[in-house]
């Protein structure tokens, strides 16, 4: 039975490991070295310049502006998305109580879940292009609806306006992500035993209290995962900003993100050393956020 085990293991493991090593592990390691060099890529060899790229980065105002936008996203996106997700999920799963003590979802909750999830299956390119034109001042959907309901005063250039472009991006990210978390939290809420709610209601707990004292604590693990997922999306933002607002990151770079600064530095300015330094900075940023959110949200696990 042991016969032939090692050749088998080798045959099965070697192709995926080789592929992974070439395309994933080796670039990750190379990035750290390239970030210490001055390199325009196509012409000469990379010359070692120590930490100069990082010094350039610390003094670069575009980088800091972009980083600030990522930080704003990092705070606002999880808060709004998880808030809305929890609200809609609790409506759908424990919202409908028809006079009696029965805990049920509202009518049509499965239809809502299907609809809410729709943006999740669309590519970020489709979402970006769709909203780029929905925010279009003259022919777009948003201004069209505002004019139709008589709110002409609220119409504006949206993506052309430096003071609102970033918030449009945030709104689109929320729009695209809420559905996933409604479904995710719904699955979690289905697993919470009904009698816990019923007992609380018999004791006179309000809907608000059952939400904060039962639903949120029992879903804490899932909320924590949601937070990390959304944090990763918030630290990226490259695709949606580039598609909606172009390579410059919006009017006056008002919605620029770090990923886009990296892309411009590497593939438009051909400064690969500096671009790698930005990549390394993003890596440590992601790592810090992951560790912090793990720490901050650590609680005792509740078994039920």
């Amino acid at each position: 039975m042991r016969h032939g085990k090692y050749p088998f293991i080798l045959a099965f493991l070697l192709p995926p490991v080789a592929l992974y090593a070439i395309f994933v592990i080796s670039p990750y390691i190379q990035a750290f070295y390239i970030s210490l060099t001055e390199w325009s890529g196509f012409t000469s060899q990379a010359t070692f310049i120590g930490l100069d790229n990082y010094q350039w980065l610390l003094r670069n105002e575009y980088f800091w502006a972009a980083l600030w936008h990522n930080v704003l996203l990092l705070i606002a996106l999880p808060l709004i998305t998880i808030g809305l997700g929890l609200f809609f999920a609790s409506m759908l799963n424990v919202g409908g109580r028809r006079g009696t003590m029965q805990i049920t979802g509202v009518r049509g909750s499965s239809v809502y879940k299907v609809l809410y999830f729709l943006p999740q299956v669309l590519s970020v390119a489709i979402i970006g292009v769709l909203w780029r034109y929905a925010f279009e001042p003259s022919t777009g959907l948003v201004n069209g609806v505002l004019r139709a309901v008589g709110l002409d005063a609220l119409t504006r250039a949206w993506l052309g306006d430096p003071s609102v472009a970033f918030w449009c991006v945030l709104a689109v990210l929320v729009w695209a992500n809420v559905g996933f978390y409604v479904v995710l939290f719904s699955a979690g809420m289905q697993a919470i035993p009904r009698d816990i709610y019923e007992a609380a209601l018999l004791d006179g707990a309000s809907r608000f209290a059952t939400f904060w004292r039962i639903t949120v604590p029992l879903l804490w693990d899932t909320i924590q995962v949601a937070w990390i997922y959304l944090a990763i999306i918030a630290l990226d933002g490259f695709a949606i900003v580039q598609i909606m607002l172009g390579n410059a990151g919006g009017p006056s770079r008002s919605a620029d993100v770090v990923g886009l600064v990296l892309y411009r530095t590497a593939f438009m300015d051909y400064n690969f050393g500096r671009a790698s330094a930005i990549g390394v900075a993003m890596f440590f940023l992601t790592l810090t956020v992951a560790v912090l959110s793990m720490r901050a949200s650590r609680r005792e696990r509740i078994e039920f």
Binding site: I25, Y28, D236, M282, F283, T286
Partner: peptide, 16 residues
């Protein structure tokens, strides 16, 4: 590999 941002690998990946 799940925890690393793709952006970190982007430049070297291009040359690989």
């Amino acid at each position: 590999g799940m925890t690393f941002p793709v952006f970190l690998a982007l430049v070297p990946l291009f040359f690989v």
